[in-house]
Write a protein that binds this DNA or RNA. Structure first.
Lengths: 203, 203
DNA sequence: GTCTATATTGTGATAGAC
DNA sequence: GTCTATCACAATATAGAC
């Protein structure tokens, strides 16, 4: 494949990402993507055939980024504290690089829940490994007895929610000063892991 | 106003809610709302003039339900434990009555963040009252020293996130068995308040 | 108030020149 | 590979009969 061909394709993907992230599938317009990419609508179809195919490329890539790399972190031999600190810090850092992803993914998944079944198979994220990892830590007396599924959801919720609800929380707590909210999100790396550790540590 | 007029209006609102909740503003079609309501498109415009106006009616109502009634609960003289238990139980119960609301509100707010400023004024939810309430509990030594804003977000995140991410979590943890997930959400009333209390209690 | 018919504009997609 | 022109259909909104 020539360099030029790959180039155009990447420009389209970048533009499409921009528009789909902001407007969602239904709100996005091929015309707007073309404008954003500085080219013609027809060219989008030449490279991706349809709006659907173009969207799918964006969605699959974003979904990969959204799914936390939990297995490596949580299934190690480190102490639970270390595992939590490392996971939370890493996950929030990753999301902050493309903070629109959580809202985009959750919106699109709710719009079309059937999509999940097929996606999950491709990814193979195996939550059972994390669940049983937590179970093991409980049995070894490292943390108090909790329902692992609830704990897992709690961890993810604490990391992700501030990004999904950003416009609301930003206005509610900081009068829309985006710099403040950014600082707030950085603080959360420590706050969240501390919050979790406190709630499950053995006294 | 005659009974018949109010009747039709209510039927439209009910149908619109159904469709807007599922598809969002951009995905919703006036035709589908009309079908759902068992009447003609023209009638929707007769009662609400435009898709925008109809949407606004739905959105404002849903937003009211989404904003937790925190002030009453959190500003009382009860112990912090009691306040948390009461708030979490109540909020999750309210959301479970119309579980599509969190995703609907967060999607639409991200799609059009400008909307918030104006809405927030109307509501007057005064988060400062809750923040300073938490501050007071800290000063009185009822709970450990934490950043009140982070604690507030944590509480809301733990309650709301499982609804926003339902399709994902349901598939991830329960192989799409919706009965299991419903039970899981009911369990959270206790799990979440316990989780919060553990993390901030003084040893 | 409620319906049918229609105006009008928007939007994904393709044909065909260069 | 990239562009212009255009098709075909979808969607909001209105006109006007009943």
């Amino acid at each position: 494949m020539s360099l030029k061909e790959t180039d155009t394709e990447q420009i389209i993907l970048l533009a499409a990402k921009e528009v789909f992230f902001k407007k969602g599938y239904d709100g996005a317009r091929m015309q707007e993507i073309a404008d954003e990419a500085g080219m013609n609508k027809a060219l989008l179809h030449y490279y991706f055939r349809s709006k659907d195919k173009l969207f799918e490329a964006i969605f699959n890539d974003a979904f990969q980024k959204f799914i936390p790399r939990m297995v490596e972190k949580m299934a190690s031999d480190a102490s639970f504290e270390e595992k939590i600190i490392s996971f939370v810090d890493n996950y929030i850092t990753v999301i902050m690089e493309v903070p629109q992803i959580p809202n985009f993914i959750l919106t699109e998944i709710n719009r079309n829940p059937e999509r999940i079944v097929e996606i999950m198979k491709k990814i193979g994220m195996q939550p059972e490994i994390i669940i049983s990892g937590i179970q093991k830590d409980i049995e070894e007396g490292k943390i108090i007895a909790v329902n692992p599924k609830h704990l897992l959801i709690n961890i993810i919720a604490l990391c992700v929610f501030p990004f999904v609800a950003k416009p609301l929380l930003q206005n509610m707590l900081f009068d829309n000063n985006s710099g403040d909210y950014h600082t707030f999100l950085l603080e959360r790396k420590k706050e969240v892991s501390q919050f979790i550790i406190n709630s499950i540590k053995i006294n």
